[in-house]
C-alpha cells in the first residue's frame, strides 16, 4: 500500500510541476492565481497520502492548515486595492 500512496503522491507532484506552465503563461493575473489555488488542493491530497504512508498525523495537521488557509491568498487577491488586470487582458481576449 505504501508504494501506492507514494506513487500517487508522485504523480500529483508531477501535475503541480506541469501546472506551473499556466503560472508562467498567464495570460492574466487571475489565471496565475487560479493555478496557485489548484496547487493548494493538490498539495492537500499529497499531504494526506504522505501522512498515510508515513503513519503520521502531524502531516495531516499540515494538510488541515492548507485546507483552512486555501482561500486566504485568493481572497486577498480579489479584495486588494488597485487591481487592474487590464494590462494583461488583451492577451486573453484573442486567445484560443
Amino acid at each position: 500500500m505504501t508504494g501506492l500512496y507514494i506513487g500517487l503522491a508522485l504523480i500529483l507532484l508531477l501535475t503541480i510541476a506541469v501546472g506551473l506552465v499556466r503560472v508562467l503563461r498567464g495570460p492574466t493575473a487571475t489565471d496565475r492565481m487560479l493555478a496557485a489555488q489548484l496547487f493548494g488542493t493538490t498539495a492537500v491530497a499529497i499531504l494526506l497520502l504522505l501522512g498515510q504512508a508515513g503513519n503520521s498525523t502531524a502531516i495531516w495537521d499540515v494538510a488541515l492548515i492548507f485546507a483552512l488557509l486555501a482561500a486566504v491568498a485568493a481572497v486577498t487577491f480579489v479584495r486588494r486595492r488597485n487591481i487592474d488586470t487590464d494590462s494583461h487582458q488583451e492577451g486573453n481576449r484573442g486567445h484560443h
Binding site: L20, A36, F39, L50, F66, A73
Partner: peptide
C-alpha cells in the same frame, strides 16, 4: 506561493 507550498512538502 507555489514555492511555499512545495517547501512545506
Amino acid at each position: 506561493i507555489a514555492f511555499g507550498l512545495l517547501l512545506a512538502l
